[in-house]
Design a protein around this nucleic acid. Structure first.
Length: 187
DNA sequence: CATATGATGGACT
DNA sequence: GTCCATCATATGG
């Protein structure tokens, strides 16, 4: 069962929290990869200096104005980063998936990541897309339109911790990085 | 354990 | 040319 249609409607901060504990599934031709989302970051529009959207619409950032549920994939330092667009149409906002707890297809992930350390498979935004084989072609597509990729709603609400975002040059004073408390697979 | 540094490719000015 | 929403190594305590 997938997500309800309005799952991604709302402020980025709220959706980032809502995604924690949810299961993400990627069906490959030979194997199904499964993981629990345990770390996210919220990004906003023009008021957020760390957001791609703060400089208006560019090739990358224009996707942030697409409808909620749109996927945004872009490259930083030769790694793919996977974001989900949130909020209402006409307003920029996105949630970055930073880390996932591996649940299924772990051997495949190990092969992809070239490591046997299970804690090193998905503990970072670039690591996650590598382990889960997230292609850049998913950019600007709606989650509902991609058969192979599904996010399953969590069964219970995990305990959530917050901190400042990672790797950004100029952050806001609020804490917009959220992660499951005491989880061993955060970045 | 911590911090530092080089590799890396695409987008942007 | 410069700038990164990164990662894997290397080095020091």
């Amino acid at each position: 069962m997938g997500l309800s249609k309005d799952f991604f409607d709302g402020p980025a901060e709220e959706i980032a929290r809502r995604l924690l504990g949810c299961t993400i599934i990627h069906k490959l031709p030979d194997e199904t990869l499964k993981g629990k989302i345990i770390e996210t970051e919220a990004y906003f529009g023009s008021d957020d200096p760390a957001s791609r959207a703060s400089n208006g619409k560019t090739k990358i950032s224009r996707v942030m104005w697409e409808p909620a549920g749109t996927i945004l994939v872009y490259v930083v330092h030769s790694y793919n980063l996977f974001n989900l667009i949130v909020g209402e149409k006409g307003k920029a906002g996105a949630v970055l998936i930073r880390a996932v707890e591996p649940l299924k297809g772990i051997d495949k992930m190990k092969a992809k990541r070239k490591t046997d350390d299970i804690r090193n498979l998905c503990s970072g935004p670039g690591k996650f897309t590598q382990a889960f084989c997230i292609p850049r072609a998913y950019n600007n597509k709606n989650l509902e339109d991609i058969e192979a990729l599904r996010i399953i709603k969590r069964k219970s609400v995990p305990e959530i911790s917050a901190s400042h975002r990672i790797g950004v040059r100029e952050d806001l004073k609020e804490k917009y990085r959220f992660f499951v408390k005491d989880n061993n697979f955060v970045s």
